[in-house]
Nucleic acid binder design. Structure first.
Lengths: 220, 220
DNA sequence: CAATATTTTTAGACAAGTCTAAAAATATAT
DNA sequence: ATATATTTTTAGACTTGTCTAAAAATATTG
């Protein structure tokens, strides 16, 4: 069985909201995420429910079935593997690849992404530090990934991910040299606004609470 | 301006039929090539004409405008560059890549194919020996590409292309070891059916007139 | 709890691309 | 040149995914 691009995007969006909020996903949240209208969502959601990819009760929101979840995870796998390809092989910057990967993730071929995965030597994390599910849907984990927020003064770590993949944010990080793999140390925390001074390899920078709550760190 | 996958496929099909038959392309030929109905073609053709991608007069068939031709050639460029990638980098066989390239050719990104082209070091011909147009639409030519048909007894050449990309044909060639780049020599021609004995690097094989008229050879 | 606000669903419409069946134009054959 | 066959176009309908506007259900608030 194969699904339309739209169906796949709905499943992916539901998966994202489900894992972010834990409970069943409301029509409005979905409409917002997919940049469409609530009425369109209602229509689509009925179709997905009939195909048993989600469970849906009127006015109660939706959640993925086992099958729907598998499909969603597979799309995410495709997306992230393509992102690795674009950055590692074609020399894109990590903030340039999202929209193209949104297209490539829907290419219909079991084999293609597997071969790409071989070619890239089975990466576990994409250029934003997000985990790449394997063929069976298993999602790799980091040992002790925490928000930079939770790192105390004097502690060190490596940037392994971002929570927000907004373009402006990624460009900001690029500018500040706070990119994946960079080693950092918390020098100082200002109590009044929770902003921090961070020491990177080259220099010290001050970042807001906003920024530090969106950076994922592996303690070291 | 950007076009739908369907529009692009119509333009590509018109381009193909135009260069094959030389004259304006009939509704039925197009319907046949696109595996759709003549009535659907009429509808679509009106739309493309309104967008000035083709010229169309009722009952007289269509032909591409300059603009339509540019778009068609660009899609072909995309297709062939992706095919090179699939074969050279992901290890596909040349007879396995067509359908996937049909999808990849429609990915919307000027930059992507250019970067891919860089990555592949600007190939001039795809895995079937077909020329890859450059960014401006220039199509590379071979020096003296002829049909194996036209090669006389005793003459030698290198296989540089196929006229027919039918899967069974490609698999047959694979089996016979008559793949791109292989050096061959005409040993004998049987007058009664124009079948030939061909010497390859390893062995001698007999091929029909059918086969030899579908192989493109560069004399040497 | 009743009144108001918000969310969700329904109903009806639209665009893209396709189809069938029938009509119109063109081509072929006697 | 007239009759027949073929090709092409038209007309009307269907599907997918979307929309607006209005109705129904749920949530919130005094």
């Amino acid at each position: 069985m194969s699904y339309t691009k739209t169906e796949e995007n709905y499943l992916k969006a539901i998966y994202g909201l489900e894992s972010k909020f834990g409970k069943s996903v409301s029509t409005n949240k979905l409409a917002n995420k997919l940049e469409t209208k609530a009425s369109s969502v209602t229509d689509m959601v009925k179709k997905l429910a009939k195909k048993e990819l989600i469970t849906y009760k009127k006015y109660q929101g939706v959640s993925l079935t086992k099958c729907g979840k598998e499909i969603a995870i597979n799309i995410i796998r495709n997306h992230r593997i393509w992102e690795v390809f674009l950055v590692e092989k074609l020399g894109y910057k990590w903030d340039e690849v999202h929209e193209i990967a949104e297209q490539l993730e829907h290419i219909k071929s079991e084999e293609l992404v597997d071969r790409l995965d071989d070619f890239l030597e089975h990466p576990s994390f994409d250029p934003h530090g997000d985990p790449i599910p394997d063929k069976k849907g298993n999602i790799p984990t980091r040992k002790e990934a925490i928000q930079l927020n939770e790192l105390a003064i004097g502690e060190e770590g490596i940037i392994v991910g971002v929570k927000n993949t907004n373009n402006e944010f990624l460009q900001y990080l690029e500018e500040m040299n706070l990119t994946l793999g960079k080693k950092i140390k918390v020098e100082k925390v200002f109590d009044f606004d929770k902003s921090k001074i961070i020491k990177t390899e080259k220099k010290k920078v001050t970042i807001s609470k906003e920024v530090s709550s969106n950076l994922i760190i592996e303690k070291s």
